[in-house]
């Protein structure tokens, strides 16, 4: 597959993730959508460093750092969802509008 093939896969993942992030109401589903967008970005980074980078290992290093940060983000986000559900009894973003009042 050529570079445009890989970039198209990444573009599809990013677009599907963006749609899910806006369209879904559940906080967990929105987190899944963010992870899909990050996966698309990771494919982009590895494919482009293979093409234009002097050392393709650097692209893999960047993607591994990205995966580590995403894992930390997921741990914090999921614990926040559990805490939010305990205090508000909902993880639907349309019911969590305390700040608007």
């Amino acid at each position: 597959m050529s570079i445009t093939g890989y970039l198209t896969v990444a573009l599809l993942l990013f677009g599907i993730g963006l749609y899910g992030l806006i369209a879904r109401r559940s906080l967990v589903a929105m987190l899944i959508a963010i992870e899909l967008m990050l996966a698309g970005i990771s494919i982009n980074i590895i494919a482009l460093t293979r093409l234009v980078g002097r050392d393709p290992a650097v692209g893999q290093v960047v993607v591994l750092i990205l995966a580590g940060v995403a894992a930390a983000e997921t741990a914090i986000a999921l614990s926040l969802f559990v805490a939010i559900h305990r205090s508000a009894h909902a993880i639907d973003v349309e019911k969590l509008s305390e700040l608007r009042r």
Partner: peptide, 20 residues
């Protein structure tokens, strides 16, 4: 989501990034 990540891992394999 798990299925999508398996597919993404397969794409990484085809890019030569086996450890990732």
């Amino acid at each position: 989501f798990a299925l999508a990540m398996l597919g993404v891992a397969g794409v990484f394999l085809s890019l030569g990034a086996d450890f990732v």
